[in-house]
Amino acid sequence: MLKKFIDNSRAKSPWIMHFDCGSCNGCDIEVLACLTPMYDVERFGVVNVGNPKHADVLLVTGTVNPRNAKVLRNIYDQMPDPKGVIAIGACGLSGGIFRECYNVLGGIDKVIPVDIYVPGCPAKPEAIIDGVVAALAKFEGLKG
């Protein structure tokens, strides 16, 4: 029974961590806006933590460049399983408008596996909530 409660809790308590991987701030402020009164993702048990060791879901915005790719990898590795990654915004998905810049490697999935892609430039808070909810579905499937 305890095990079941733990499994159920997983989808009820996704602690998110946001990492800005070289975004233009547009998506970042929308991620932050999700936490604020108007959208309040804490309704879903989401807590914004500042530390990968406490996080279940990593929200990544922005393009990857060689320097922040190492950081992104490191943060992802420090997150204990089970974990999920949500890529947010055109830059995070593919590099967006900056795909062809000399210091851009492309989207988040060049470095770490991505579970949910949230398109938009920037993605609306509603879209991010949709993304988080979709990620929860992944945790729900993770029974046992």
Partner: peptide
């Protein structure tokens, strides 16, 4: 309306 998130590219 915004485009919905997806799990695949």
């Amino acid at each position: 309306n915004h485009r919905k998130p997806s799990a695949t590219r």
